[in-house]
């Protein structure tokens, strides 16, 4: 069967390599859709809590370091670029470049996780954790010295918010005239911690944690691809696995593209 196609990679139940490649791609797109829906649940939780309690998000997001988040975004976009480039090299049979680019992609993933670890460490030290583990020391003015040294002062009532953002301090209106509703609550949040700040950190850790697990899974898959690329298994006639691994990696990037503004850039 497969002998007549001169193709060792063709499974017995497919007639042509094209049919096999297309099946693999369709399968991968379906799998990616399930990934989107998996994260969809968390995006749903995010949307429900943010729309009902914007003050929590406005207050708590400032404990995240936008600079580190932005650097991570750039790193992941870069890795997506090298991945797309790697697929191109596999299609064109550029063996050496394929190996190098896969290596760079994995390194980017390591860098991303490294920065994420630094961020998690800060949160851990400041007690800015999820749900029942939330014990913000900063609320009582006792900043961790390590955070202070790195200039990562979490803005609280005692810190000028301008350190982290350009939002002007809210003008103090006569209380009797203050408009009720979200706007007032949001402004109020700049001054003191609202109720249930831990909700933000629950969502932050769930979203970035699940994303981090996907990054690790991606690194495993890419390492396997790297190994097979070093063995010279891929070329213009057969590159489906690299292509599919690439699709997965881009989705990991895609999710971060949304996580970054949703978690770090709240106004």
């Amino acid at each position: 069967m497969s002998a007549e196609h001169h193709d060792a990679h063709l499974a017995h139940h497919f007639d042509t390599p094209i049919q096999q490649l297309e099946s693999g791609k369709l399968g991968m797109w379906i799998f990616l859709s399930t990934e989107i829906l998996l994260f969809g649940g968390l995006f749903c939780a995010y949307a429900v809590y943010r729309s009902n309690h914007p003050e929590i998000f406005v207050y708590a997001h400032r404990f995240l370091d936008t600079r580190l988040g932005a650097i991570n975004t750039v790193i992941l976009i870069g890795s997506s670029f090298t991945m797309a480039w790697a697929v191109r090299c596999a299609q064109l049979g550029k063996q050496k470049a394929l190996v190098v680019l896969l290596g760079v992609t994995i390194l980017c993933a390591c860098g991303f996780l490294g920065i994420k670890a630094v961020e998690y460490e800060h949160k851990w030290k400041d007690g800015l954790l999820w749900g029942k583990r939330y014990k913000a020391k900063t609320e009582h003015g006792a900043h961790a010295p390590a955070a202070k040294a790195k200039g990562l002062l979490p803005p609280t009532a005692k810190v000028n918010p301008e350190v982290k953002s350009l939002i002007p301090l809210p003008a103090e209106a006569p209380h009797g005239l203050a408009a009720p509703g979200h706007a007032a609550r949001a402004e109020h949040a700049a001054m003191e911690a609202p109720k249930n700040v831990q909700t933000f950190f629950s969502i932050y850790f769930l979203m970035t944690g699940l994303h981090g697990i996907h990054v690790i899974a991606g690194m495993v898959v890419l390492s396997w691809m790297l190994l097979r690329a070093i063995r010279g298994e891929f070329g213009p006639a057969y590159y489906t696995p690299v292509d599919l691994a690439g699709l997965y990696w881009h989705v990991v990037d895609l999710i971060w593209i949304y996580l970054f503004p949703l978690l770090y850039l709240i106004h």
Binding site: A45, I56, G131, T199, S202, L206
Partner: peptide
Amino acid sequence: LGVGIFDPALGGDPVL
């Protein structure tokens, strides 16, 4: 871990 997404005592929403 007690993330509290569905726990009203931690600001969560069981209807969700």
